[in-house]
């Protein structure tokens, strides 16, 4: 049964593993305890005390707070109920002109803003770029992922969620 030490997983999270180190982890059988180990690593890294229930994103976590499951950024900003799209609590920049798209892509190499605009969703706390959307103007904001937390813990891991 594959098992990786915490140091290896931490280096992987930080993008510090060489290809020679990473390749066997990709190719090999998965370590069944990975979820718990990653959870433990992330919990120690965040500067706040709320219990992480599920890592949702590079910077976002579903945490338990006052009996509620909320989305929280590692900077501490809270986005509210995880069942609502956290993007609707973000600061948003829309690049819908040739000039604004041209800041990121050379001429001809970005979308035509009349066909597709580029949206940037920032955390209102730390202004980290959390998501981009390349969509036609007027497209509804996409709700990327709504996990079924209790089914995951109870049916797949065979235990109660940490907040239950």
């Amino acid at each position: 049964m594959e098992k990786y030490d915490k140091k290896t997983l931490e280096r992987m999270i930080d993008g510090d593993l060489s290809w020679e180190e990473l390749k066997p982890i990709i190719s090999g059988r998965k370590d069944p305890n990975r979820f718990n180990m990653i959870l433990e690593i992330l919990q120690k890294r965040v500067p706040w005390k709320e219990r992480i229930i599920l890592p949702l994103h590079e910077h976002l976590y579903i945490v338990s707070k006052d009996g509620q499951r909320i989305v929280k950024c590692d900077c501490g900003h809270e986005f509210g109920d995880y069942q609502e799209n956290w993007k609707t609590k973000c600061r948003v920049r829309v690049r819908d002109t040739i000039e604004e798209i041209g800041e990121l892509y050379p001429k001809y190499m970005g979308s035509d803003p009349e066909w597709e605009e580029l949206r940037e969703y920032y955390c209102p706390g730390c202004f980290t770029l959390l998501d981009t959307e390349a969509v036609p103007p007027g497209y509804p904001t996409i709700f990327n992922f709504l996990p079924d937390i209790d089914a995951f813990y109870e049916k797949w891991l065979g235990k109660k969620a940490p907040d239950k």
Binding site: H59, S111, A134
Partner: peptide, 20 residues
């Protein structure tokens, strides 16, 4: 060419450049 390819980047990453 007029749009970026597919569903773009992830977790704050951007789509790759378009064709022309």
């Amino acid at each position: 060419g007029m749009v970026f390819h597919g569903a773009g980047g992830m977790h704050g990453g951007y789509p790759n450049a378009t064709g022309y």
